[in-house]
Design a binder for these strands. Sequence first.
DNA 1: ATGCTACTTGACCAAATAGTCAAGTAGCAA
DNA 2: TTGCTACTTGACTATTTGGTCAAGTAGCAT
Lengths: 191, 191
Amino acid sequence: MKETTRQKLIDATFEEVYSHGYQGAALADILKNAGVHKGSMYHYFGSKKEMALVAIQERISTRNFEKYSKILALESGYLRALLTAMKDTKQRDFKRGCPIANIAQEMSNLDEDFNKTMKLLYEEFRRYIKNILDKAVEAKEMQACDTKKMALFITAALEGAILSAKATGNAQDYIDSVEILEEYLRAFSNN
Amino acid sequence: MKETTRQKLIDATFEEVYSHGYQGAALADILKNAGVHKGSMYHYFGSKKEMALVAIQERISTRNFEKYSKILALESGYLRALLTAMKDTKQRDFKRGCPIANIAQEMSNLDEDFNKTMKLLYEEFRRYIKNILDKAVEAKEMQACDTKKMALFITAALEGAILSAKATGNAQDYIDSVEILEEYLRAFSNN
DNA sequence: ATGCTACTTGACCAAATAGTCAAGTAGCAA
DNA sequence: TTGCTACTTGACTATTTGGTCAAGTAGCAT
């Protein structure tokens, strides 16, 4: 299946923004990596910013969906699956960190459109976690609790753990942090 | 006491970098806000990057020292003082977030010198927390535990909580996250 | 007063930036 | 075949970027 020009742009934009931040993302490099000319890009998108927002939105939403909707679709073992997903370091890029956190942190206070987009993506992430916790409570795998607040804490701890590993260059920091988070969550577990 | 040219530059640089990130920090704006001319700046610093690194280093180290060394200097009540400091939202700027996290996240994977500097500052922050926990254990306010790992988890959870508030624009997210962190820590407390 | 050093001034520069546009081409519908 | 639309090409522009530098000034030691 052939990749369209638009898709090539979205992929190259996401990579560039993920690696260098939005402000550090050079349009020239995006175009070079996509193999697309400038005028062509401006046919599909009105500006660098618009293209970046579309790329971020699409790519992160897809990733969240792929990662968490399959847990929600389980018949049981929600909490265990969530913990397994959290502890799976194979898919994580500790050099670059979490795309949501990166861009939210860079842009939330600088641009209203980025602010809105990243707020939605952050809340989407948090909602996935809350829904998984709700399923776990419903399935009696876990004590009833304030799942909204719990989901907030889990996402915060996860983002913080990823940042620790990025800041120190040590993936073990992520593993250690998540281990404590796991202990904390297991105290609510019925197994 | 008169503010020297060098100090004016450091202060303006820190503010600009804190607000806009390093890549988004415009030298022209720093100079305008400092009221210093370009050639004068290049008398004190070799480059924008060098000046930014000095500003970040100095300002963040000072802030960490002011905030945590007075807790370490207490005779007792270490854990309580730490929790109080964590819950004190008056001094926090949730719009801009945490300077360490901001710059570490933006620059750690882009520049080796930033990487080194932010790693040191991050570790310094974590060491303050560990030392406070050690004092608390020593004073029997708290059960013996792996304070290094605990400090890692606390810093991660705090950074994540600040990011949550920044991403959603809701300071309550920080408060709620820290409340759970507090509950977790109180389980280790002897009071 | 002289001379030295530390500092300041602001004009200048090359490179990179996002964005524009007129001219082209490919492919499809009539 | 004609003509229309969707898309591509790449040269061009205005602005901003960090950085340079020669000329100047203030203040202090001799």
